[in-house]
Design a binder for these strands. Structure first.
Lengths: 308, 308
DNA sequence: ACTTTCTATACTTTATAAATATATATAGCT
DNA sequence: AGCTATATATATTTATAAAGTATAGAAAGT
């Protein structure tokens, strides 16, 4: 049995004559009669009762008619559902974030915006270090990872820069140098040379497997002519700011951290800004297997990259 | 799209290689590849990702796989359902009875027996005069009518004798002749000649459109040498027996009425038994359109007559 | 009885699925 | 690095079956 048989059968059942059904189908009457005959032979019972002015459905034919219509409809549905999934309008999408990226305002904006545009894509979230996310992406268990620095570049994984964020120097509010930050009336930050922090106790984020910004800051200090005295190493940026607020030491954190502990931390624009960039990157497979992920990339403004 | 495409697609998805799927399908690999290619082209997206050791489903392919399996299953279901209906194992069956046949013990036995054998046939019942039932059968709105005498024989309607029932003479228990009925000890009935009832007041069933038994009894009286004196004409056999019990007169009723008003009615076997037969007939279309009706006829023991 | 209006059958053509032969690509092995 | 094994893809032929053409047959209405 083929769908053709069902289409033909439905046409005849609706037209109530072979002749008109054949016209409607755009074929001649004899092949239509033959196809119906073949169908009747295959299923083992007569679908139509041949009456002088055409045909009428038998009891079995009536049942088959309803079934056949339902089947054709479900074929159409199948086509549409698969099409939606294939083009990423429906499906599942797993997103991974590092702690410092999920704190950035971009994360909730991306998520809520994407959900509005694609309400039929089921989102799954997970959190982990940059290294973990990249590994998950490369193994195909995570569609998209959002992280700061590509701490590893496995084959088949691509990175897309979402934005380059400024790093700010963070000093305890009670620090003598902090006074300068509060004199200003404009919204722009006071600047401070990294060199001015020579000898200060430094707090650094050395998250396991995320050497990126740690190394950048140490290198910037070297270039400024000193070796930073590290008094604390913390797991993530939030702890970092909290320790600065507690007066443990100074540090450099991404600009998006500015609102956190704002009462107890003074933020300065470093003169060495160029050397202290905090990028926000998106990691995904180069050949994206999940079309929903492609939708996400496009939505996030990454260069076009087709799912197969 | 044809079912063939779905069958081939499912085979490839399950085998995970074209080559083995082709073997399983009993065709060669190239035509299988071509068919899948045509399917992919028609639905507008790739179903498989070609990998060195075979193929794997894309996201759209996975969705289509589930849909396609459901569709093939529903084709199978459709075939079975229609087949059951076509062969009368499922469906609807409307049965009509006259009052005198529904009172006969055969009616409940037929119904309950048939329901046990064919639990998936939905039964509908209706009651009416023999004429009404025959008309309904001929118009196709009733599948089977069970009645006493074929009071009309429209073209296309066939009658099948279910059983020939004996008519009994019924006299009020208080009637002088009734004493003979109670003397006997054996289960067999006392006999009585119709001639003995000459001059008695007669009650007759003259249901509108059911001339059958009324005419038979009058004719039998004539043959017995007298014209019955009719004191009451009733609508159905039950009323008939009730009036006999009430002492209004004598009558002849089918044997199955014997248990009704047994206290107040004496029953005799008429000597003219041959002339007073009460048949039970089944009426249906000669070309039975409802296979469930054919099942019923066969169950009731009627000669085989196929539904188309 | 004749025309009309259907379906059914016989036969031909055409389209397309399947078969055959072969090319191409890639991973794993020596 | 080249060879082999194991895939899919392509080109071409063959076979199958669907569609087309012509016509017969059956039944109802004029």
């Amino acid at each position: 049995m083929e769908l053709r048989h069902m289409r033909y059968f439905i046409a005849v059942a609706e037209a109530k004559t072979f002749t008109r059904a054949a016209e409607r189908l755009g074929i001649q009457q004899p092949p239509l009669s033959l196809q119906i005959k073949a169908l009747e032979h295959e299923i083992g019972f007569k679908l139509f009762r041949r009456i002088p002015k055409g045909v009428e459905l038998t009891v079995g034919g009536k049942v088959f008619f309803n079934e056949a219509r339902a089947i054709l409809a479900s074929v159409e549905r199948a086509r549409q559902r698969a099409n939606s999934a294939a083009h990423g309008r429906t499906g599942k999408l797993s997103l991974g974030f590092t702690t410092s990226t999920i704190t950035h305002q971009l994360a909730p904006r991306l998520i809520s915006g994407f959900r509005q545009v694609y309400p039929d894509i089921e989102l799954e979230f997970q959190e982990g270090s940059a290294a973990t996310l990249i590994d998950s992406v490369s193994r195909g268990v995570l569609d998209v990872g959002i992280l700061r620095t590509p701490v590893a570049r496995p084959d088949g994984v691509s990175f897309h820069l979402l934005l380059k964020e400024q790093m700010l120097l963070a000093l305890p509010a009670v620090h003598p140098l902090s006074a300068a930050a509060y004199k200003r009336k404009s919204a722009t930050l006071a600047t401070l040379s990294l060199r001015a922090l020579r000898g200060e106790p430094f707090i650094l984020t050395r998250r396991h497997g995320a050497a990126g910004m740690y190394a950048d800051l140490v290198a910037a200090c070297h270039r400024a002519g000193f070796i930073p005295r590290i008094v604390a190493e913390v797991e993530n940026m939030l702890s970092n700011v909290a320790l600065v607020a507690a007066g443990v030491g100074v540090s450099a954190v991404p600009e998006s951290m500015r609102s956190i502990h704002a009462q107890d931390v003074a933020f300065f624009q470093p003169k060495e800004a160029m050397q202290l960039a905090a990028p926000l990157n998106l990691a995904c497979l180069t050949n994206i297997p999940n079309p929903a992920a492609t939708r996400f990339l496009t939505f996030a403004g990454c260069p076009e990259s087709e799912s197969e």
